[in-house]
Design a protein around this nucleic acid. Structure first.
Lengths: 228, 228
DNA sequence: AAAGATTTTTAGCCCCACCTAAAAATCTTT
DNA sequence: AAAGATTTTTAGGTGGGGCTAAAAATCTTT
């Protein structure tokens, strides 16, 4: 297993994001243009061309002059693993170190480059093999498989948005009991009515039931999927 | 606060180790030779000279041609912080992820370069502000102060060595109860009689009491200080 | 103190990852 | 299909971090 430089890994991930279909659907072979990559990485197009050649020569990209790039099987594999590392570290930072979900990206960007299979595996176990990161993005498993459901934390919703409850972040008994009590469970449909910035609590309407106010902590532990 | 490259940080730490007196005593201004640094870092002496100039120009080293280097106040500060990061990460890897103490160095070597003051602070809190790492080396606090006591794990002792118990690695009730039971407590003096490689257990003589055999696990959780 | 040995520095190259400017290829438009 | 616009590549440069070989400085010996 050849090991990539940080720059190579960064390019690979950027290309992955550009070529991977948003919705999580199949579709595979999409292509990314030199300019798009340059824009995504904030570098000159000429620098990108250099790197594309290097990554292609390592068998990670299909590259033909003036024709854009697509990922090879191997490239896709490595990129997926990078995404895995990134999302696991983000989960760690939020769940274990108490960072807020919007503060972790840059740090995870650094941590994801640490080279150690065993570290990632142990981190995964330590976090209880999470399937979604704090932003609701699915975390690929060691073989690259990931859930396709696109969920976000309740706290990510803006007033007016409707959603359905699809999961919890931490499944402590006390939290589940609380959800039970306030009539929130998997499949419950709700709409955010108002959000109070001073303490992060929210007022949400549960379809067919009365409105309730939930604390910031609850908002940070409840996964929902937007409905329209 | 200027930020260093990973290579710069590695040199700085290597020089710190060479100039810092082993015993933890004061003494400050020791000097390191180009060759010694090259040996420590496994690089050509010429490369070291280059780097010394660079670090000197950044105000981290006192450097005069053919005269070796010493750390400046600022350099010392940064190096101490690096050591702090390294030891905190080692503690994390052992205590939280369950790595064995001899497997964590290389990974911590990578983690220590992650740039984020807040990350280090939160990690420190998460680990409960430990003062010693899994190898018994003291962890500097955020201001660079650290304990000077040089303790090692019981497992680090060779047969014949004498030592006094100074602490435990993990202070779980069950472990403390066990220590009580076998008459080992802070301040107990002992001598290693024999060590069994096949399971890592040891036979130790407790001064004024009878000999006991302790398991590998115990050896890995008991800090002692060598006496002569 | 002069010769020899050792250490350190200089000189000159290499690769990676970036850059700008100019050339070439492809796409758009008419 | 030719002109113009845009994208992409080539050419040539820079700094970081490494190398070897040779020169210079310092230390050791006699």
């Amino acid at each position: 297993m050849e090991t990539l430089t940080q720059a190579e890994e960064n390019y690979l991930k950027a290309i992955y994001k550009l070529t991977e279909p948003e919705g999580g659907m199949a579709a595979g072979g999409k292509t990314a243009s030199t300019n798009a990559i340059a824009a995504a990485m904030n570098t000159a197009a000429a620098s990108v061309t250099d790197m594309l050649k290097r990554l292609a020569s390592k068998g990670l990209l299909h590259y033909e002059k003036h024709r854009g790039v697509a990922m090879t099987e191997r490239g896709h594999e490595l990129a997926t693993n990078l995404v895995r590392r990134h999302r696991l570290w983000e989960s760690f930072l939020v769940q274990k170190l108490g960072f807020s979900w919007d503060a972790v990206h840059d740090i995870a960007e650094q941590l994801e480059h640490v080279q150690s299979e065993e570290l990632v595996e142990r981190l995964d176990v330590f976090l209880d093999r999470p399937t979604y990161d704090p932003h609701g993005d699915p975390i690929p498993d060691a073989k690259g498989r990931m859930a396709s459901r696109k969920q976000v934390l309740l706290s990510a919703l803006a007033p007016g948005e409707k959603a359905v409850v699809v999961g919890v972040q931490e499944s402590q008994a006390s939290f589940l009991q609380y959800l039970d009590r306030v009539q929130l469970s998997l499949g419950t449909e709700l709409q955010v009515m108002e959000r109070f910035d001073y303490d992060g609590s929210m007022r949400v309407a549960i379809i067919d039931k009365e409105e309730i106010t939930v604390s910031h902590k609850v908002c940070e532990n409840l996964f929902v999927q937007r409905t329209k």
